[in-house]
């Protein structure tokens, strides 16, 4: 059966409270999911307080400040700090977002709760195991397959054809969408999930690709594609404003059209 509850080794405990030193009337509390495989049997929530008057505006700024000034042992992925690399995706106050694009002010009153992207094996703290997602990405063969003779220069494409792949190719593979999808939580071992299906769609609509039929064949599966029930959590989570649900619906329509 699908395990709707967290397994025993994953139930989150109350962790350490780090007191803020010095005066400030703009204190913000951050509760961060902590788990160190070398030391901890169970994950826990540690609580930190930061003076927002002395901190950058984004959640990522706050985490880095906590690491620099309070607790250097927190692990997370981050790189570009401007929503381009997709590394710092995490669950912030219950929804999946990029920490670098999330304004602390937009989160309202109360503590900010940070945890890894949902329903992943936790490697350490805010770092979830993304290997299955990368493997699923590999499985859709995300590269151009063209049967014509190689051109001397690049393969040309009409501007309107380029527009068709424009949105899908803006995906940064942060996996905010895939890990927000209940269907992916329960059947992620077989279901490809919104992020990978968006990428699959990107190759289906590319005018330069000659294997559209084969690609559709590979997706015509009860589990790989049709576990999508248009729940729409993916579209509502995407930090780049892309629409995986729409891409998947379009893929389903392409499959329906061949019959």
């Amino acid at each position: 059966m699908a395990e709707l509850r967290l397994p025993k080794n994953s139930r989150v405990q109350e962790g350490k409270h780090w007191k803020h030193e010095g005066d400030s009337d703009n204190l913000k509390t951050f509760r961060i999911y902590r788990y160190d495989p070398a030391r901890d049997a169970l994950p826990r929530m540690d609580t930190y307080s930061l003076d927002l008057d002395d901190c950058g505006p984004m959640v990522l700024d706050a985490i880095l400040k906590i690491i620099d000034e309070i607790d250097p042992s927190i692990a997370l992925r981050r790189s570009c700090r401007e929503g381009v690399c997709g590394s710092c995706a995490m669950n912030i106050n219950g929804t999946n977002q990029l920490a670098c694009l999330c304004h602390i002010d937009d989160l309202g009153e109360g503590p900010v709760r940070l945890s890894p992207l949902p329903h992943l094996d936790v490697i350490k703290d805010l770092v979830g195991d993304l290997r299955r997602l990368y493997a699923q990405y590999e499985s859709i063969e995300p590269w151009l397959k063209n049967d014509q003779a190689e051109p001397e220069r690049e393969r040309l494409q009409l501007p309107e054809d380029r527009d068709k792949v424009d949105e899908d190719s803006k995906c940064i593979l942060c996996f905010c969408c895939a890990t927000s999808c209940p269907s992916y939580w329960w059947t992620g071992d077989k279901f490809l999930g919104p992020a990978i299906l968006l990428q699959a769609h990107r190759w289906l609509v590319d005018s330069r690709d000659d294997r559209t039929g084969e690609r559709l064949d590979a997706l015509d599966d009860t589990f790989k594609l049709y576990r999508c029930h248009t729940i729409m959590n993916c579209t509502s989570a995407c930090p780049k404003g892309l629409n995986p649900s729409k891409a998947i619906a379009d893929t389903k329509r392409m499959l329906a059209r061949r019959r």
Partner: peptide, 26 residues
């Protein structure tokens, strides 16, 4: 040794999208 699973259903903020979806199923 098995790694913990990150919190999902109970920690994810209820969305109007997924709530209506589960109601459809129910």
């Amino acid at each position: 040794m098995s790694r913990p699973l990150s919190p999902h259903l109970t920690w994810y903020k209820p969305q109007i999208t997924s709530t209506l979806s589960i109601l459809h199923r129910f």
